[in-house]
Structures are given as C-alpha cells and as structure tokens.
C-alpha cells in the first residue's frame, strides 16, 4: 500500500484523482480501519489528511460557524465556538462512542461513513448544515448534510469532504438517544431537534431522525407540526406522532421496525419537551 501525507488540499485532490477508487482517505480512521482489514488492492493508496491544517479548524463569521472535517468529537465537546453557536454538536459528540473514540473520530468521517445511526449527523441536519465537496479541477460544490448522507456512497471516488457550515442563529435544541446498554453503543434511534423562536412561537424547526430510515433523515411532518405553534406537551405529542409517521425504520438484529417507530415518537416528544 502506498502512503501519502499531503500538506495542502489541492495536493490531496490530485492524489484522489490519481488513485480513484483505490484511494483511501484517512481522517480518524475508526471506520477506515475495518475497511482496510477486509483487504485492499495491492496498488491502493492511503491518503492521510492530518497535515492539512485548513481541514482541522473551527472558525466563525457573522453568519456561519465553519468546522473543518478533521475536527474531532473531543474538540467539538470542548471548543468555545461550538458551545456558543452549536451546542447540540457538543452534546452529540459526548454521546459518540467513549472517550477513546472521541479523541480521534472526526466530524468529516461521521458524515462520510453515512451511518444511519450516527450521532453527529442528526445534529448537523437539525442545524441545516451543509458542507463543501471538493474535487480536482472543479470548483467546490456545496451540498446539505442531509443530501450527502442520503447517497450510497456519500461521496464519489475523487471527492473530498471540505468544511462544514453551520448557520448561526439564536435557537433552542435538544438531543435524545436510545441504546440497549448505556455506554459505547450506536443509537437504536436518536432524535435531534432545533427550533428558532419568534417570541413564544416556533418560527422554524428542524427534526432529524437517526436509526429511523436507511440514512439519517428529516422528519418534515414533525417540523410542520412545530412551526407556528407554541411549545406545549400537546404540540410535543403531535410532533412525536408525525415523526413516527415520517419514519421508515428497518427491522434488524438490534431492534424491530415497530419498536424503532415507537421510539421515534417517544424520543421526538421528549426532545421537544426539553427545548
């Protein structure tokens, strides 16, 4: 296997272009390690992004918080700008795996792995986040996180996930995650909710569901139930019911579709109550 540590984004893009599907991008590597163990082509290349400083920054402008794809869950938990503008990312980062994983797991890796039960992705979708998609020779393209994770695979062979943009606005947000045991487990179902308030009324709302469909999805029915209403237990219950209707869960070894749907209702209701 060949190994590269590009210093600049362009250099990485050239390598990606050159190796195509044989290129393996290394961020934290917590998912990539398993892919490599399954075996790779002899002429594969491992492209370690760690030297590209631009990909590891957290910055804010007047309107947006920009998060580099190499930012780790541990950094999200602790960074002041995240706490200030996007506290739900800090919350969800704290529920990702355990401390050892948070040290290395990156937000970019969380998006690109596109796991239907990922922890950071629902928060990003609830925040209406989008991200740069870079490739050699082309201009950066911007896509919503929801769109990115709905594709299989999330990115094409020559593409690199660039910075993630989270719009800054006063908001309320909450996260609910259900697991079979309490520690070190991916969600059976999780729900992230974010609302912008206009006085006592919900001006805008985003509800994102993990473990409730083949990818993390928005619950648009639940969002409609929230927008224009005053938060109350009835509204929360209605949002839960709508979210359950929006969900398209699977039965697998970890949980049945019926249970997952019930969890979507309960967790959405609780997330709204917690706002």
């Amino acid at each position: 296997m060949q190994y590269y540590e590009p210093n600049f984004i362009d250099e990485a893009l050239v390598l990606l272009d050159r190796f195509g599907t044989n290129a393996h991008v290394l961020a934290g590597g917590t998912r990539l390690r398993f892919a490599l163990r399954r075996g790779v082509a002899a002429d594969a290349a491992l492209i370690n992004l760690k030297r590209i400083a631009d990909l590891g920054r957290i910055e804010d402008t007047a309107s947006d918080l920009w998060i580099g794809p190499l930012v780790t869950a541990a950094a999200l938990r602790r960074h002041v700008l995240v706490g200030k503008h996007a506290p739900l990312l800090a919350t969800t980062a704290a529920s990702l795996g355990a401390a050892q994983l948070q040290t290395v797991a990156t937000i970019g890796g969380n998006i690109v792995s596109a796991d239907p039960a990922a922890d950071l992705v629902p928060a990003l979708i609830a925040y209406s986040a989008d991200a740069e998609i870079l490739s050699a020779g082309d201009c950066a393209r911007i896509a919503t996180v929801e769109d990115i994770v709905s594709k299989r695979p999330a990115l094409q062979g020559r593409e690199l996930l660039g910075r993630i943009r989270v719009p800054i606005a006063p908001h309320r947000a909450s996260y609910q995650k259900m697991t079979t045991r309490r520690g070190l487990e991916m969600a059976l179902v999780s729900v992230a909710v974010s609302c912008r308030m206009g006085g006592a009324v919900v001006a805008d709302a985003r509800v994102a569901l993990a473990g409730a469909a083949p990818s993390v999805v928005r619950a648009r029915g639940a969002e409609r139930a929230l927008i224009g209403s005053r938060l109350s237990s009835e509204v929360a219950q209605a949002a839960g019911e709508r979210a359950a209707a929006d969900a398209d869960p699977l039965t697998d070894a970890r949980a049945s579709a019926a249970y997952r749907r019930a969890l979507v209702a309960t967790l959405t209701q609780r997330a709204v109550m917690e706002l």
Partner: peptide, 16 residues
C-alpha cells in the same frame, strides 16, 4: 494516551 488523550491503540494508526 497520545499527547495525553486516550485512544484505542487497536484502531489508531501508528503513522498518526
């Protein structure tokens, strides 16, 4: 610990 932070050595890349 890598730079004082805990990691799973089984997942961590030695090059890192």
């Amino acid at each position: 610990l890598v730079d004082g932070e805990p990691v799973n050595a089984c997942l961590f890349f030695a090059v890192d």
